[in-house]
């Protein structure tokens, strides 16, 4: 009898060990050319489902309750809202033409959307499904970053080569920071003290102090054997788990750079698929996912070992990424 209890005890411990392993999550990937969303199972790392959506899906964001996925369907000139349970597009949001990247405010009530063709940032109320306001910015707005406290909205404009600091109360641009050519992604650190802005053509990442709005450091990259033109930083992901690491996707260089956020040293370059653009963490930040446009796959990086463990074939030209802590289906 005692023996049996012991066995049961061990069995349940083992079960718990596995059950508590936080890999029961899903990765949503937008495929720009296929007009689909691929859903990858975080446990098996295989594509579980593929959903057809509107034209040219690019930036995607999950609602804070992970119930719906907002998708910039750029060529349809609106944001589609996908019910994550039913995998049906329930409604659309008015985004203005050619939406590309967007962010939710900390409350999860408003979407800040960059309209590339109209030089605008559109603020959309997701509950009322209405366009609240349009903020004129530089030419070809691209990246959107929202500070953790929600006070600042940073938008990058690809042609003006600026990061615009917009006060979310007044919705006015309070500062413009000149960065290197073709800024793409803007990302705040977890404490909101810095914004990291990648410059695709310039090949750099500018680290801007939020308070002074001045560039305090500029990262540049070098991959042995690769021409400097091939290094085009786009996606930026900053850890908030205390590891103090930043990850930068280097586009055609097919590498993700691992950067120490304190010393700004580049620790490692990890080989992923070709034209790597966007990045997303797993819920507990033990993995990083990358969309590789040209090779049409998503690479999975083990962040503890800093090793690329797998590349998963998805649709044509995967672009955006969102990770939900819920296992779908």
């Amino acid at each position: 009898m005692r023996k049996k209890t012991y066995v049961q005890c061990v069995a349940s411990t083992v079960f718990l060990l596995f059950a508590t392993h936080a890999s029961a999550y899903s990765i949503f990937v937008s495929n720009e050319k296929d007009n689909t969303i691929s859903i990858i199972d975080g446990e098996t790392l295989e594509v579980a489902e593929t959903v057809t959506v509107g034209e040219r899906p690019r930036g995607i964001v999950l609602s804070h309750d992970n119930a719906v996925l907002y998708m910039c369907t750029s060529d349809d000139d609106h944001v589609e809202v996908l019910d994550v349970k039913t995998l049906k597009v329930t409604h659309t949001l008015p985004s203005g033409p050619d939406p590309e990247l967007m962010q939710l405010n900390p409350e999860g009530t408003k979407l800040y959307i960059a309209n590339e063709d109209d030089n605008l940032v559109t603020v959309v109320n997701v509950d009322d499904r209405t366009k609240e306001v349009e903020i004129p910015v530089g030419i070809e707005p691209e990246g959107i970053g929202v500070s953790p406290d929600g006070k600042w909205l940073v938008n990058t404009s690809e042609t003006t080569n600026m990061a615009h600091f917009i006060n979310t109360d007044t919705l006015k641009i309070e500062a413009n920071v000149l960065v290197d050519t073709r800024p793409r992604v803007a990302q705040f650190t977890g404490d909101g003290s810095e914004v990291w802005v990648s410059s695709e053509i310039g090949g750099t990442v500018s680290i801007i102090d939020t308070e002074s709005k001045e560039i305090k450091h500029k990262l540049s990259f070098e991959v042995r054997g690769l021409a400097p033109e091939a290094i085009q930083p786009v996606g930026v992901k900053l850890s908030t788990d205390g590891s103090n690491r930043a990850y930068i996707a280097l586009g055609p260089a097919a590498r993700v750079a691992v950067v120490n956020m304190q010393t700004y040293e580049i620790e490692k370059y990890l080989l992923v698929g070709q034209r790597v653009w966007n990045l997303e963490f797993s819920p507990d930040q033990d993995r990083l996912f990358t969309t590789n446009g040209v090779s049409g796959d998503v690479s999975v990086i083990d962040l503890k070992k800093l090793r690329v463990i797998k590349s998963i074939k998805v649709g044509r030209f995967p672009w955006g990424l969102a990770v939900s802590p819920d296992k779908r289906g």
Partner: peptide, 18 residues
């Protein structure tokens, strides 16, 4: 051959390898 952008994925490799 380092500059080559990884060897295409063929079994047994799960991802691009140098």
């Amino acid at each position: 051959f380092r500059s080559v952008l990884g060897v295409s994925i063929i079994p047994p490799y799960q991802t691009y390898v140098l």
